[in-house]
Simulated scan of single mutants.
Amino acid sequence: MNLALFDLDNTLLAGDSDFQWGQHLIEQGVLDRELHEARNIEFYEQYKAGTLDIQEFLDFQLKPLSRHSRSQLDAWHKDFMEKRILPLITLQARKLVNRHMLAGDLCVIITATNSFVTGPIARAFGINHLIATEPEQRDGEFTGRVSGPPCFRDGKVVRLESWLDHHNLTWLSFLESWFYSDSLNDLPLLKKVTRPVAVDPDATLRAHAEKNGWPIISLR
């Protein structure tokens, strides 16, 4: 058996779901545009530059979940999927996922974006396994805090290895392991797999891939 890991934002998606969720809530009038949009853009630029403080960002991004009922959030998310996410899913991305599924590989989306935002997106790709940053819940409602370690940078390796252990698996369970990512933030996990692949990469990841002979592909 082989393992196929997929980053989500700017990899399988031709855009960033975390950023788009914030913009969607602004568009719905849930968040104040003047106060929220500039901060949302600032955090996104920090992420791309590799300077993001993940705890500061999660405090900003998860707080809105705590201010509304789960039923209301789910209704907004359904609209979010239709208007902002489905247009970001390219045919090339679907073909890549389907190729690994047809090969019988264990397919997993692993993303720093929280599981509330990304769960329905994983299902849209037909991928049953999602490892994501987990928003804390109490009695089915979100508290605005994070549960466990964020699935970000080295945290992706930690979360993945914990997930594998929970499923009675290790790296040695797989003949080969792929990880597809666009971001320099994913270098810790890219260095762990046998088949790292840079997808529409940022400049830092592109340079690293070229230096190490990693494949560079585009799903756009």
Rank of each mutant, 00 (worst) to 15 (best):
L86Q: 14
L86G: 09
L86T: 14
L86A: 11
L86I: 06
L86K: 14
L86R: 15
L86E: 15
L86P: 09
P87K: 10
P87T: 07
P87L: 05
P87Q: 13
P87R: 13
L88G: 05
L88Y: 03
L88W: 04
I89C: 10
I89F: 08
T90F: 06
T90W: 05
T90K: 11
T90H: 09
L91H: 13
Q92T: 05
Q92R: 12
Q92P: 03
Q92G: 00
Q92A: 14
Q92E: 15
Q92L: 10
A93C: 10
A93V: 01
R94V: 15
R94H: 12
R94M: 14
R94Y: 06
K95F: 07
K95L: 12
K95E: 15
L96F: 06
L96T: 02
V97Q: 02
V97M: 11
V97A: 07
V97W: 02
V97K: 01
N98C: 09
N98G: 08
N98F: 07
N98D: 15
N98Q: 15
N98P: 01
N98Y: 06
N98W: 05
R99K: 13
R99M: 14
R99E: 14
R99P: 00
H100V: 03
H100M: 11
H100S: 13
H100A: 12
H100R: 14
H100G: 13
M101D: 07
M101C: 10
M101R: 14
M101P: 00
L102M: 08
L102P: 01
L102Q: 15
L102E: 11
A103E: 13
A103G: 10
A103C: 12
A103W: 01
A103D: 14
G104D: 06
G104A: 08
G104M: 08
G104V: 11
G104E: 07
D105H: 15
D105Y: 04
D105K: 10
L106N: 09
L106I: 01
L106D: 07
L106Y: 13
C107F: 08
V108R: 11
V108W: 09
V108K: 05
V108P: 04
V108C: 08
V108Q: 09
V108T: 10
V108G: 04
V108E: 06
I109H: 02
I109F: 05
I109G: 05
I109K: 01
I110H: 01
I110M: 06
I110A: 03
I110Y: 00
I110C: 06
I110T: 07
I110R: 03
I110K: 01
T111S: 12
T111P: 03
T111I: 01
A112W: 00
A112Y: 00
A112C: 01
A112N: 01
A112F: 00
A112H: 00
A112I: 00
T113I: 12
T113N: 03
T113F: 09
N114Q: 08
N114G: 08
N114L: 11
N114P: 04
S115T: 02
S115H: 05
S115Y: 04
S115R: 10
S115F: 04
F116G: 02
F116K: 08
V117L: 01
V117W: 02
V117N: 05
T118E: 04
T118S: 10
T118V: 10
T118R: 07
T118F: 03
G119N: 12
G119Y: 11
G119K: 15
G119P: 02
G119W: 07
G119Q: 13
P120S: 09
P120M: 04
P120W: 09
P120L: 02
